Simulated assay, not measured.
Amino acid sequence: MTWRMPAETAPHDRTWMAFPTAGTTLGESTADHEEAYTAWTAVAHAVAEFEPVTMLVDPTERERAAQRLGSGITQVEAPVDEYWMRDHGPTFVVDDERPGVLGAVDWIFNGWGDHEWSEWRKSAEHARIIAELVGAELVSSVLVNEGGGIHVDGAGTVLLTETVQLDPRRNPYADRARVEAEMARTIGATKAVWLSRGLTRDYDDFGTSGHVDIVATLASPGRMLLHRQDSTEHPDFEVTRDLRAQLSQETDAAGRSFEILDLPAPAAIRDDEGFVDWSYVNHLVVNGGVIACGFGDDRADAAARDVLEAAYPGRKAVTVDARPLFARGGGIHCITQQQPSLPSAR
């Protein structure tokens, strides 16, 4: 069998999420808790306007989730500690030789490198739980990896980051060749494009050490969307400049140079914790739409919607305030995971 991860632009059967639970990510105060519940709920309802959403809900949050999500979002009870579904949930794949078969890659998840604060042992089971729920074949992996650490074009190209897959806290014995072989086996990637690093804030203690899904994504084969920081005061000014220079020299699985479309960052460069990593790259493509991160910057938010709608013709971009998500270490793409439709179901 040959597994292949479809592009995010391929038709979806649904999007998977996990409802917040008590813990470090939720925050300390009642206001922090409310902000998190509201943010996750807002994303779920935005996605549900375009395609079905299924939410894993911890038993302790059953009543709250039912009240906030309503009947329009399917709720499935399962143990939850972390709720960044992109990272601990399954990465769905298909087998082009068996059109009716869905696969679910079960990466090893260790809380982004087993930090002291990370609570991950319950959510590390989500890939297996969801695979069983949807009848997918489980594709077990020996690689510590997260869904936010990869982006694909569905045609053989995968974007990776040296500081993620080669992170000694994740894969102390891995090298590029081993990672690339596992990407070929599990998601059908024949060409890996390695970013040298991610955005600055992502290397804080609560970061992921360079997830690609806030830096770059592949809108279509040969076309890349790339975060751009225009403020010379921000350390990501040099980071994104250097990444653009690097990626402009790269080619995809078909040997094409990338057409790079810039997604400029919003004007704000700091929050209470320091330099922000606010990025419009961290969007979710859904059936007929794009769920875009918003940062309270009307001009920049609107400009990002224009870029996204041009990059994904025929889709409507909708903005959801992502500041509460980024304050907790991620964005809209990080809390969602798409399940592709199988050819026989289209």
Results as ranks from 00 to 15, higher is better:
1 M>V: 11
7 A>K: 11
12 H>C: 12
21 T>Q: 10
22 A>L: 14
25 T>Q: 11
26 L>A: 03
26 L>I: 11
30 T>K: 13
42 A>V: 05
45 H>K: 15
50 F>I: 15
53 V>I: 06
57 V>E: 09
62 R>A: 14
63 E>M: 11
69 L>Q: 11
80 V>L: 04
90 P>D: 04
97 E>Y: 05
99 P>C: 02
102 L>N: 08
113 G>E: 01
117 W>V: 15
118 S>R: 10
124 A>P: 01
133 L>E: 07
135 G>S: 08
137 E>A: 08
137 E>S: 03
143 L>N: 02
146 E>Q: 05
147 G>Q: 03
154 G>T: 06
155 A>D: 03
155 A>W: 00
168 P>K: 14
190 T>V: 09
191 K>N: 13
199 L>M: 10
199 L>R: 07
200 T>E: 12
202 D>E: 14
215 V>N: 12
216 A>H: 14
219 A>E: 01
228 R>I: 07
229 Q>V: 13
233 E>Q: 12
234 H>N: 15
249 Q>M: 13
257 S>W: 00
263 L>S: 11
278 W>E: 05
280 Y>Q: 09
280 Y>N: 12
283 H>A: 14
295 F>D: 13
309 E>K: 01
314 G>M: 06
328 R>H: 13
339 Q>S: 07
343 P>S: 14
345 A>I: 00
346 R>H: 15
